[in-house]
Design a protein around this nucleic acid. Structure first.
Lengths: 185, 185
DNA sequence: CAAGCACTATACCGTGCGGTATACTGCTCC
DNA sequence: GGAGCAGTATACCGCACGGTATAGTGCTTG
């Protein structure tokens, strides 16, 4: 593996575990067994490293999400597919999804939050568009539905990270069912 | 106001805006117009300051939460009351609730997360106990219900912080209704 | 008045931060 | 073969970090 890739991998491990502000570039470079100028050669700055990491690892999730959310007349099917995309991604990229969760909830004036803002917006936009097409008679609620659906997905993924559940098809069905029909059903 | 209180207030502002690791004790002390030894006199360490801040401002929320979650045979009523407690608290302590959200989702090996762990656990325990009493025949799902309910509350509060909605009684009812019966109802 | 204590400021500690100037490698391409 | 460039290391910059030793304040209590 070339140094660039190693740097991104080690950065992911460290940032996901301890956070953007708590980890220094020195430490990341050392973990990748290179020196700081190498890191700055590839990424220009600490922020550039974070941006690159987020962009490169987020891209496949976004692609799959767009596919799963393409509306064809069956909203429950779409929601089930979307949940599947998230579960699959979180299962195979647990560390990165953890990082995504932390930057998504970082303080609003922190660098990490700024770096993650548009990733969040893109996910919400896709989901909102799905709800808009599927439920055209419910104006004003689409944004709320997109956020609550993603929120429920994230709760289930967090549960899985804690080892309480497995992200299998059964749980996937339960999550979507709970979103559509609630717990009293 | 005495220096201790001013320090806590300024610390809340700064930490909520930029995060625990990005704000130095020097800056907090300067914002409170005192010097570092004063801060260290009251709180012993940076971590001690965070612990104190979280403990003191979280206490009233926890008290109200316990009251609202005391089960008396009507789960929907309890959920409605709990949502009310959170909405009221978030409306009156927006900055602190924001801080609570960031530390709750901080990286697992960060100091901020360690400091917030038991606060989170105490909230979940109260809600879990409520679900256990109200739905004794659904073993294994109480934890999930507690987390998804709190998750939905937090999504609505986040929406309100963004200015999209107001945390009034109507939204409070909508949130609880969505949790109980889903979006297809 | 004097002893003691809570509180605060000046000045400092060692360490690590993000970032860079410089120079050396090896490789490609004329 | 030499010019140029991507990639890497040594050594350094100024600065801010978390934390503390010391020395005062003023206020309470005998």
């Amino acid at each position: 593996m070339d140094n660039r890739t190693v740097l991104l991998d080690r950065a992911l491990e460290l940032l996901a575990a301890r956070g953007y502000d708590a980890v220094g570039v020195q430490e990341i470079a050392a973990a990748a067994e290179v020196t700081k100028p190498t890191l700055y050669h590839y990424f220009g700055s600490k922020r550039g490293l974070l941006d690159t990491l987020l962009a490169e690892r987020f891209a496949p999730l976004h692609t799959d999400l767009c596919t799963a959310a393409a509306y064809q007349g069956d909203l429950p099917l779409n929601l089930y597919q979307v949940a599947g995309v998230y579960f699959d991604f979180a299962r195979e990229n647990g560390q990165f999804y953890g990082l995504l969760m932390t930057v998504r909830h970082a303080p609003p004036h922190s660098e990490a939050y700024q770096a993650a803002l548009h990733l969040e917006r893109r996910q919400i936009a896709v989901l909102e568009s799905l709800f808009t097409q599927a439920l055209p008679h419910m104006e004003g609620r689409h944004h709320r539905y997109a956020l609550t659906f993603l929120g429920m997905i994230n709760v289930y993924i967090t549960l899985a990270v804690g080892g309480d559940i497995a992200l299998d098809h059964e749980v996937q069905h339960q999550a979507v069912h709970q979103f559509m029909y609630g717990v009293f059903s």
